[in-house]
């Protein structure tokens, strides 16, 4: 596959956040790429959702995936979160294979434990929030740090309180998710993901399920996080204004391939590909 981007120019001295295949050196762990897809193909039945996809994301970059629905954007996030497995190709996170293990010089499908270790570097915020209804807000946030990372309860709660303050929900710590509005639930979900201190945050259409008047608050929070932390972000969104604000790079998807990529100024102002132009004129 090929894209016609030469990578972003925004941040001097850094590696391209999303580079064309062949640019990055083979081998892993060079520190310049946090996420690397190599020839990844994903099919659902006879429908090829991702077609021989290559792309990389450098640490600290904010990359937005745009494109018509069904173009495979969300599948990329779900592959990274190992909610689905690739049919072909490999994915590496921070230099390590996500769904494969090297055994005797050969790549074999990884066991649950290996995948789980790599996965700890990744956090995800879902479209439908997916908070645990059986836990109050505080416990939603502390449960994984305590039981997955092995943090002491006091430490986890302190972390949770800081995050809840960040997302502006201090007064809601003692409520159940069903007692919160959609916007509040999504803020808790963001805090819950951040409590694991992931290197990468995946945002899957996080405002699509919200009432219109609640969208801005959540986007402002994410802008704030994007601008004040060095967390790597991979977003699927239909909010083009938001994409323009936070992205170092925008990847335009169509039919399972990246058809155009580049810094947001370029993609949104002077897209080169005909499909990109069509898509943007439809959504902007």
């Amino acid at each position: 596959m090929s894209t016609d981007s030469t990578g972003p120019t925004g941040s001097p001295g850094s590696t391209p956040a999303a580079s064309t295949p062949g640019r990055s050196t083979p081998g892993s762990g060079n520190g310049a790429e946090l996420i690397r897809f190599d020839k990844v193909t994903k099919r659902f039945g006879s429908n090829t959702v991702l077609d021989d996809l290559d792309f990389t994301v450098a640490p600290g970059k904010h990359v937005t995936l745009i494109g018509p629905s069904g173009s495979g954007k969300t599948t990329i996030l779900r592959l990274l979160m190992t909610l689905v497995k690739p049919d072909e190709g490999t994915i590496r996170v921070d230099g390590e294979y996500l769904t494969h293990e090297e055994k005797g010089g050969r790549l074999v499908p990884a066991g649950e434990k290996h995948t789980r270790e790599i996965r700890k570097k990744i956090g995800m915020v879902f479209q439908q929030f997916n908070l645990f209804p059986n836990m109050k807000v505080l416990q939603n946030i502390t449960e994984a740090p305590v039981h997955v990372l092995g943090l002491g309860r006091d430490e986890a709660e302190e972390r949770a309180r800081e995050l809840v303050e960040l997302v502006g929900l201090t007064e809601c710590l003692d409520r159940y998710p069903t007692q919160l509005s959609g916007g509040q639930q999504q803020r808790v979900a963001i805090a819950r993901a951040l409590a694991m201190r992931p290197q990468v945050l995946l945002l899957d259409e996080v405002t699509s399920a919200l009432d219109p008047e609640l969208v801005a608050g959540v986007l402002d929070l994410l802008r704030d996080i994007a601008h004040t932390t060095d967390i790597t972000m991979l977003c699927v969104t239909h909010e083009m204004g938001f994409a323009r604000d936070i992205s170092d790079d925008v990847l335009m998807f169509d039919a399972g391939r990246v058809i155009e990529s580049g810094p947001p100024e370029k993609i949104f102002s002077e897209p080169e590909n005909e499909r990109t132009r069509e898509f943007l004129s439809a959504v902007l």
Partner: peptide, 10 residues
């Protein structure tokens, strides 16, 4: 899926 995303064991 939310449980997987937080790396809980099965």
């Amino acid at each position: 899926e939310a449980g997987i995303a937080l790396s809980f064991t099965p």
